[in-house]
């Protein structure tokens, strides 16, 4: 049993070594089925912002820091959009206990974000998210250039800084 696991691990690593291009590529977002707030299926590969940066924020209705993060950004979102054209996609990991609260909560809070539902956390798993809130920033080519877990007041400044750097074509690291 253990041997097999080890073999599997080694075979995956070997595969990865073979498959690495000479120039290191940035990670793309995996293709996973999500749900729109209307209940339709939406594949994560359809996430689009016409070559402008995208912020993906994993959150839940029961997570206070997540709601704080989204409320904080909601206050400045219009300015951010005007300045950089950035789009925020808020992916709720609420399960069927609370997923029907997502839309009323988002509207009740007057959020202008695009909301997607990940009720069985398939996207969360595919994106390797441990804890919420967890945020990803994608560049115009939809490559993940930055990610961060947790939120505290003032954290939004770093986010917009990264977005501005992407727009200017500066190095993130």
């Amino acid at each position: 049993m253990k041997k097999i696991g080890l073999m599997l691990l080694i075979s995956m690593l070997v595969m990865a070594v073979y498959s690495q291009d000479t120039e290191k590529k940035l990670a793309q977002i995996p293709s996973v089925d999500l749900k729109t707030i209307e209940g339709n299926t939406f594949n994560s590969s359809q996430i689009e912002n016409n070559g402008k940066p995208i912020i993906i924020s994993f959150w839940a209705t029961w997570c206070k820091p997540c709601c704080k993060e989204l409320n904080t950004i909601a206050d400045v979102y219009a300015d951010w959009q005007q300045e950089t054209g950035v789009k925020l996609i808020a992916v709720s990991i609420d399960d069927s206990r609370s997923s029907d609260k997502v839309k009323p909560l988002a509207n009740g809070n007057s959020w202008d974000f695009e909301i997607l539902l990940d009720p069985n956390q398939d996207f969360k798993r595919a994106m390797n998210v441990n804890l919420v809130p967890h945020m990803f920033i994608l560049n115009g080519k939809k490559e993940i250039v930055w990610q961060h877990t947790s939120f505290s007041d003032g954290g939004e400044l770093e986010i917009i800084d990264i977005v501005r750097k992407i727009i200017k074509g500066e190095d993130i690291k």
């Binding site: 075979s11 690593l13 595969m15 498959s19 590529k25 990670a27």
Partner: peptide, 26 residues
């Protein structure tokens, strides 16, 4: 069989380039 399929599938799946694969995790 499972391991073989893991190792071989990217090779057999001709529509995909063998390069460009990524390892990610948490």
């Amino acid at each position: 069989i499972f391991i073989l399929s893991v190792v071989l599938s990217p090779i057999f799946a001709k529509s995909q380039t063998i390069g460009g694969g990524q390892i990610h995790g948490n």
